[in-house]
Protein backbone atom coordinates (compact mmCIF):
# COMPACT_ATOMS: atom_id res chain seq x y z
CA UNK A 1 0.00 0.00 0.00
CA UNK A 2 2.75 2.40 0.99
CA UNK A 3 4.56 1.19 -2.10
CA UNK A 4 1.60 1.99 -4.32
CA UNK A 5 1.45 5.49 -2.91
CA UNK A 6 5.13 5.93 -3.59
CA UNK A 7 4.64 4.79 -7.14
CA UNK A 8 1.93 7.36 -7.61
CA UNK A 9 4.10 10.08 -6.18
CA UNK A 10 6.97 9.05 -8.42
CA UNK A 11 4.66 8.99 -11.41
CA UNK A 12 3.42 12.50 -10.74
CA UNK A 13 6.93 13.79 -10.28
CA UNK A 14 8.03 12.26 -13.53
CA UNK A 15 5.10 13.73 -15.40
CA UNK A 16 5.88 17.12 -13.96
CA UNK A 17 9.61 17.00 -14.52
CA UNK A 18 10.20 15.15 -17.76
CA UNK A 19 8.98 16.71 -20.97
CA UNK A 20 8.63 14.13 -23.76
CA UNK A 21 9.12 10.67 -22.31
CA UNK A 22 11.22 9.40 -25.16
CA UNK A 23 14.74 8.14 -25.03
CA UNK A 24 17.47 7.52 -27.55
CA UNK A 25 20.49 5.30 -27.39
CA UNK A 26 22.60 8.14 -26.09
CA UNK A 27 20.10 9.43 -23.59
CA UNK A 28 20.57 8.77 -19.90
CA UNK A 29 18.37 6.28 -18.11
CA UNK A 30 16.95 7.78 -14.96
CA UNK A 31 14.40 5.63 -13.21
CA UNK A 32 11.54 7.31 -11.33
CA UNK A 33 13.25 10.60 -11.96
CA UNK A 34 15.86 9.76 -9.35
CA UNK A 35 17.87 6.57 -9.87
CA UNK A 36 20.64 7.35 -12.34
CA UNK A 37 21.69 4.33 -14.36
CA UNK A 38 25.03 4.08 -16.11
CA UNK A 39 24.13 2.52 -19.46
CA UNK A 40 27.42 3.23 -21.25
CA UNK A 41 30.88 3.27 -19.78
CA UNK A 42 34.48 2.28 -20.49
CA UNK A 43 35.06 -1.46 -20.73
CA UNK A 44 36.80 -3.08 -17.77
CA UNK A 45 40.50 -3.87 -18.25
CA UNK A 46 39.94 -7.62 -18.23
CA UNK A 47 38.17 -7.40 -21.60
CA UNK A 48 41.65 -6.78 -23.04
CA UNK A 49 40.39 -4.24 -25.54
CA UNK A 50 37.81 -6.58 -27.09
CA UNK A 51 35.27 -3.84 -26.40
CA UNK A 52 36.09 -0.19 -25.87
CA UNK A 53 32.75 0.71 -24.39
CA UNK A 54 30.25 -1.47 -22.59
CA UNK A 55 26.56 -0.76 -23.09
CA UNK A 56 23.46 -1.88 -21.31
CA UNK A 57 20.93 -3.72 -23.44
CA UNK A 58 18.64 -0.77 -22.73
CA UNK A 59 20.60 1.34 -25.25
CA UNK A 60 19.71 -1.10 -28.03
CA UNK A 61 15.96 -1.12 -27.50
CA UNK A 62 13.28 0.99 -29.12
CA UNK A 63 12.02 4.20 -27.54
CA UNK A 64 8.78 2.49 -26.57
CA UNK A 65 10.57 -0.30 -24.72
CA UNK A 66 13.07 2.07 -23.13
CA UNK A 67 10.39 4.31 -21.72
CA UNK A 68 8.70 1.43 -19.92
CA UNK A 69 11.75 1.11 -17.71
CA UNK A 70 11.97 4.78 -16.77
CA UNK A 71 9.14 4.67 -14.28
CA UNK A 72 8.25 1.80 -11.99
CA UNK A 73 4.62 2.54 -12.71
CA UNK A 74 5.17 1.61 -16.35
CA UNK A 75 7.55 -1.27 -15.66
CA UNK A 76 5.52 -4.49 -15.85
CA UNK A 77 8.22 -6.29 -13.85
CA UNK A 78 7.40 -4.34 -10.72
CA UNK A 79 4.36 -6.45 -9.89
CA UNK A 80 6.78 -9.33 -9.43
CA UNK A 81 8.89 -7.18 -7.13
CA UNK A 82 5.76 -6.49 -5.10
CA UNK A 83 5.01 -10.22 -4.97
CA UNK A 84 8.55 -10.89 -3.78
CA UNK A 85 8.20 -8.22 -1.12
CA UNK A 86 5.20 -10.12 0.21
CA UNK A 87 7.19 -13.35 0.12
CA UNK A 88 10.05 -11.58 1.92
CA UNK A 89 7.78 -10.91 4.85
CA UNK A 90 6.10 -14.31 4.88
CA UNK A 91 7.13 -16.76 7.60
CA UNK A 92 7.79 -20.18 6.12
CA UNK A 93 9.47 -23.40 7.18
CA UNK A 94 10.27 -25.21 10.39
CA UNK A 95 12.29 -22.32 11.88
CA UNK A 96 9.31 -19.96 11.77
CA UNK A 97 11.27 -17.34 9.96
CA UNK A 98 10.84 -15.05 7.01
CA UNK A 99 13.59 -13.25 5.11
CA UNK A 100 12.67 -10.21 7.19
CA UNK A 101 13.36 -12.09 10.44
CA UNK A 102 17.10 -11.91 9.75
CA UNK A 103 17.51 -9.23 7.10
CA UNK A 104 14.85 -6.66 8.07
CA UNK A 105 13.95 -4.79 4.89
CA UNK A 106 15.12 -5.89 1.45
CA UNK A 107 17.10 -2.65 1.27
CA UNK A 108 19.51 -4.23 3.72
CA UNK A 109 20.74 -6.33 0.82
CA UNK A 110 21.52 -3.35 -1.41
CA UNK A 111 24.76 -4.17 -3.20
CA UNK A 112 24.23 -7.91 -3.16
CA UNK A 113 23.13 -8.08 -6.78
CA UNK A 114 26.07 -5.88 -7.77
CA UNK A 115 28.64 -8.36 -6.48
CA UNK A 116 27.10 -11.72 -7.37
CA UNK A 117 28.01 -14.30 -8.54
CA UNK A 118 30.72 -14.38 -5.90
CA UNK A 119 33.03 -16.80 -4.14
CA UNK A 120 31.42 -18.44 -1.12
CA UNK A 121 34.31 -19.45 1.10
CA UNK A 122 32.21 -21.74 3.27
CA UNK A 123 30.91 -23.66 0.26
CA UNK A 124 34.19 -23.46 -1.61
CA UNK A 125 32.41 -22.44 -4.80
CA UNK A 126 31.12 -19.48 -6.74
CA UNK A 127 27.51 -18.85 -5.80
CA UNK A 128 24.77 -16.98 -7.61
CA UNK A 129 21.92 -15.10 -5.96
CA UNK A 130 19.66 -18.12 -6.42
CA UNK A 131 22.05 -20.30 -4.43
CA UNK A 132 22.21 -17.83 -1.58
CA UNK A 133 18.44 -17.50 -1.49
CA UNK A 134 17.93 -21.23 -1.43
CA UNK A 135 20.60 -21.68 1.20
CA UNK A 136 18.69 -19.25 3.42
CA UNK A 137 15.50 -21.13 2.76
CA UNK A 138 16.75 -24.62 3.47
CA UNK A 139 19.39 -23.95 6.13
CA UNK A 140 17.97 -21.01 8.06
CA UNK A 141 14.23 -21.14 7.46
CA UNK A 142 13.80 -24.88 7.22
CA UNK A 143 11.75 -24.28 4.10
CA UNK A 144 11.73 -25.94 0.71
CA UNK A 145 14.23 -24.76 -1.86
CA UNK A 146 12.74 -22.85 -4.75
CA UNK A 147 13.11 -24.00 -8.31
CA UNK A 148 16.00 -21.99 -9.81
CA UNK A 149 13.87 -20.84 -12.69
CA UNK A 150 10.50 -20.85 -10.90
CA UNK A 151 8.33 -17.78 -10.49
CA UNK A 152 9.10 -17.36 -6.77
CA UNK A 153 12.84 -17.33 -7.40
CA UNK A 154 12.63 -15.02 -10.39
CA UNK A 155 10.47 -12.66 -8.34
CA UNK A 156 12.97 -12.68 -5.49
CA UNK A 157 15.91 -11.97 -7.79
CA UNK A 158 13.91 -9.07 -9.20
CA UNK A 159 13.44 -7.67 -5.71
CA UNK A 160 17.12 -8.15 -4.89
CA UNK A 161 18.11 -6.41 -8.12
CA UNK A 162 15.69 -3.56 -7.54
CA UNK A 163 17.30 -2.55 -4.23
CA UNK A 164 20.71 -2.37 -5.94
CA UNK A 165 19.57 -0.31 -8.90
CA UNK A 166 22.07 2.38 -9.80
CA UNK A 167 24.96 0.69 -8.04
CA UNK A 168 27.86 -0.34 -10.28
CA UNK A 169 28.21 -4.01 -11.10
CA UNK A 170 31.44 -5.11 -9.51
CA UNK A 171 31.90 -8.86 -9.44
CA UNK A 172 35.28 -10.18 -8.34
CA UNK A 173 37.15 -12.23 -10.91
CA UNK A 174 40.39 -12.82 -9.07
CA UNK A 175 41.43 -14.91 -6.10
CA UNK A 176 39.41 -18.06 -5.57
CA UNK A 177 36.84 -17.03 -8.23
CA UNK A 178 39.48 -16.88 -10.96
CA UNK A 179 39.21 -20.51 -11.97
CA UNK A 180 35.43 -20.33 -12.44
CA UNK A 181 35.78 -17.03 -14.27
CA UNK A 182 38.32 -18.54 -16.64
CA UNK A 183 35.96 -21.42 -17.36
CA UNK A 184 33.21 -18.93 -18.13
CA UNK A 185 35.47 -16.99 -20.44
CA UNK A 186 36.34 -20.12 -22.35
CA UNK A 187 32.64 -20.86 -22.81
CA UNK A 188 32.01 -17.33 -24.03
CA UNK A 189 34.38 -17.88 -26.93
CA UNK A 190 33.36 -21.47 -27.71
CA UNK A 191 31.43 -21.94 -30.94
CA UNK A 192 28.61 -24.25 -29.94
CA UNK A 193 26.10 -26.19 -31.97
CA UNK A 194 25.51 -26.81 -35.63
CA UNK A 195 25.51 -23.08 -36.32
CA UNK A 196 28.92 -22.88 -34.61
CA UNK A 197 28.20 -19.66 -32.80
CA UNK A 198 29.93 -18.38 -29.69
CA UNK A 199 28.53 -15.68 -27.45
CA UNK A 200 31.27 -13.45 -28.85
CA UNK A 201 30.27 -13.99 -32.48
CA UNK A 202 27.05 -12.09 -31.91
CA UNK A 203 27.53 -10.03 -28.76
CA UNK A 204 31.15 -8.92 -29.12
CA UNK A 205 31.79 -8.93 -32.87
CA UNK A 206 28.33 -7.92 -34.05
CA UNK A 207 26.56 -5.93 -31.39
CA UNK A 208 24.57 -3.03 -32.80
CA UNK A 209 24.01 -4.97 -36.04
CA UNK A 210 20.65 -6.30 -37.11
CA UNK A 211 20.23 -10.05 -37.38
CA UNK A 212 17.01 -10.33 -39.34
CA UNK A 213 14.73 -7.95 -37.36
CA UNK A 214 16.66 -8.29 -34.12
CA UNK A 215 19.06 -5.60 -32.94
CA UNK A 216 22.02 -7.42 -31.40
CA UNK A 217 23.10 -6.15 -28.00
CA UNK A 218 26.28 -6.83 -26.08
CA UNK A 219 24.46 -9.51 -24.13
CA UNK A 220 25.10 -7.79 -20.81
CA UNK A 221 23.28 -9.16 -17.77
CA UNK A 222 23.42 -6.12 -15.51
CA UNK A 223 19.71 -5.62 -16.12
CA UNK A 224 18.51 -9.10 -15.20
CA UNK A 225 16.11 -10.42 -14.40
CA UNK A 226 14.49 -8.91 -17.46
CA UNK A 227 10.80 -8.65 -18.18
CA UNK A 228 10.61 -9.85 -21.77
CA UNK A 229 7.64 -8.53 -23.66
CA UNK A 230 7.59 -11.68 -25.81
CA UNK A 231 7.33 -13.84 -22.66
CA UNK A 232 5.24 -11.37 -20.63
CA UNK A 233 7.18 -12.44 -17.57
CA UNK A 234 10.56 -12.23 -15.88
CA UNK A 235 13.38 -14.15 -17.51
CA UNK A 236 16.32 -15.38 -15.47
CA UNK A 237 19.92 -15.12 -16.60
CA UNK A 238 20.32 -18.86 -16.96
CA UNK A 239 17.11 -19.22 -18.91
CA UNK A 240 18.38 -16.63 -21.37
CA UNK A 241 21.70 -18.47 -21.65
CA UNK A 242 19.85 -21.71 -22.23
CA UNK A 243 17.79 -20.15 -25.02
CA UNK A 244 20.79 -18.54 -26.70
CA UNK A 245 22.79 -21.76 -26.81
CA UNK A 246 19.72 -23.71 -27.94
CA UNK A 247 19.42 -21.24 -30.81
CA UNK A 248 22.86 -22.24 -32.04
CA UNK A 249 21.34 -25.69 -32.67
CA UNK A 250 23.29 -27.05 -29.73
CA UNK A 251 22.60 -29.42 -26.89
CA UNK A 252 22.29 -26.62 -24.38
CA UNK A 253 23.23 -26.58 -20.69
CA UNK A 254 20.82 -26.78 -17.79
CA UNK A 255 19.66 -23.86 -15.69
CA UNK A 256 21.74 -23.94 -12.52
CA UNK A 257 24.49 -26.04 -14.10
CA UNK A 258 28.14 -25.44 -13.15
CA UNK A 259 28.70 -24.30 -16.73
CA UNK A 260 26.08 -21.57 -16.51
CA UNK A 261 27.28 -20.47 -13.09
CA UNK A 262 30.73 -19.98 -14.60
CA UNK A 263 29.29 -18.23 -17.64
CA UNK A 264 27.18 -15.98 -15.43
CA UNK A 265 30.24 -14.88 -13.48
CA UNK A 266 32.15 -14.16 -16.67
CA UNK A 267 29.32 -12.33 -18.43
CA UNK A 268 28.54 -10.36 -15.27
CA UNK A 269 32.19 -9.28 -15.14
CA UNK A 270 31.96 -7.97 -18.70
CA UNK A 271 29.45 -5.50 -17.29
CA UNK A 272 31.57 -4.33 -14.36
CA UNK A 273 30.95 -0.58 -14.33
CA UNK A 274 27.43 -0.60 -15.71
CA UNK A 275 24.68 -0.08 -13.16
CA UNK A 276 22.52 -2.79 -11.74
CA UNK A 277 19.33 -2.14 -13.65
CA UNK A 278 16.96 -5.03 -12.99
CA UNK A 279 14.25 -5.74 -13.25
CA UNK A 280 14.48 -4.34 -16.75
CA UNK A 281 12.16 -4.37 -19.75
CA UNK A 282 13.29 -5.95 -22.98
CA UNK A 283 11.63 -7.14 -26.17
Amino acid sequence: MRKAALHVAAGVLTLAAAAPALAGENDPLIINGQIEITTRTAAPAHLDGHLSEIRSGWTFRTDETQVMQMDDFDNPAMIYVDAATDAWNTVEGSADKSCASCHEGPESLAGFRATTPKWNAEAGAVWTQEMYVNNCRTERMGAEAWDWNGQDMRNMTALLASVSRGMPVNVAIDGPAAETWEKGREMYYTRFGQLELSCANCHEDNYDNLIRADHLSQGQINAFPAYRLKDTNLVSVHNRFRGCIRDTRAATFAVGSPEFIALELYVASRGNGLSVEGPSVRN
Binding site: R191, F192, G193, Q194, E196, R242, D247, R249, A250, A251
Partner: peptide, 14 residues
Amino acid sequence: GYIRVGDAFTGKAP
Protein backbone atom coordinates in the same frame (compact mmCIF):
# COMPACT_ATOMS: atom_id res chain seq x y z
CA GLY B 1 32.81 -31.93 -36.18
CA TYR B 2 30.62 -29.78 -33.95
CA ILE B 3 30.82 -28.90 -30.27
CA ARG B 4 27.67 -30.09 -28.47
CA VAL B 5 25.59 -30.37 -31.59
CA GLY B 6 21.86 -30.41 -30.87
CA ASP B 7 18.78 -31.95 -32.43
CA ALA B 8 17.84 -28.87 -34.47
CA PHE B 9 16.45 -26.17 -32.12
CA THR B 10 15.22 -28.48 -29.38
CA GLY B 11 18.21 -27.75 -27.15
CA LYS B 12 18.63 -31.49 -26.72
CA ALA B 13 21.39 -33.77 -27.91
CA PRO B 14 20.44 -35.85 -30.93
